[in-house]
C-alpha cells in the first residue's frame, strides 16, 4: 500500500493484488488454540476421513481471516466494516489458496464494496466473499 492512495476513491472494477496463503497442520493447531475452535475434524485425519474428507480441512474462519491482510495490502487506509463469506469447498491442510478481489461499487467517503474469491490449486472456487471498506 502506498501512501499516495490514501484518501483516493477506489474505482469500480479495480482489482486487489492476488494474495496466496497456505496453512499446514501446525498452522491449524495454532489457530485452534488461538480461536478456541478445536473441532477435531480440523486436527485429526481419522475424524476428517469419517466425514468423507481426504485430509483435515483448514478452518473456514482461518481462511476467511486471510482476507483482511489481503485487503490491507491493497488499501491500508480503509477499514473493514463488513466481511461475509460462503465456504463452498473444503481446503485441505497444505493446499495453497489464492485470494483475489474486485471493486464492484465505490464512492466518496471513500468506500468500496468488493467481491472476493478464494481459489484452490485446481482453480476451483472455494470461498465467495464480500467486503465493505470505508474510511476509519
Amino acid at each position: 500500500m502506498s501512501d499516495e492512495r490514501s484518501g483516493d476513491t477506489p474505482r469500480t472494477g479495480e482489482k486487489i493484488p492476488a494474495h496466496t496463503v497456505r496453512f499446514d497442520l501446525a498452522d491449524l493447531r495454532r489457530y485452534a488454540e488461538a480461536s478456541g475452535d478445536d473441532n477435531p475434524i480440523h486436527l485429526d485425519a481419522a475424524v476428517a476421513r469419517r466425514a468423507g474428507l481426504e485430509a483435515p480441512p483448514v478452518h473456514g474462519m482461518l481462511l476467511m481471516s486471510a482476507f483482511e491482510p489481503a485487503l490491507d495490502a491493497w488499501r491500508a487506509d480503509l477499514a473493514l466494516r463488513r466481511l461475509a463469506a460462503k465456504f463452498l469447498r473444503p481446503v485441505f491442510a497444505g493446499e495453497s489458496v489464492e485470494i483475489s478481489g474486485r471493486v464492484v461499487e465505490a464512492g466518496e467517503g471513500p468506500y468500496a464494496l468488493l467481491r472476493l474469491l478464494a481459489h484452490n490449486g485446481r482453480r476451483e472456487i472455494v470461498i465467495v466473499a464480500e467486503a465493505m471498506l470505508a474510511k476509519p
Partner: peptide, 11 residues
Amino acid sequence: IPIHESQSFDV
C-alpha cells in the same frame, strides 16, 4: 459433525 457453511461480521 458441524461443518462451517457461511459466516459474516458487521462492525
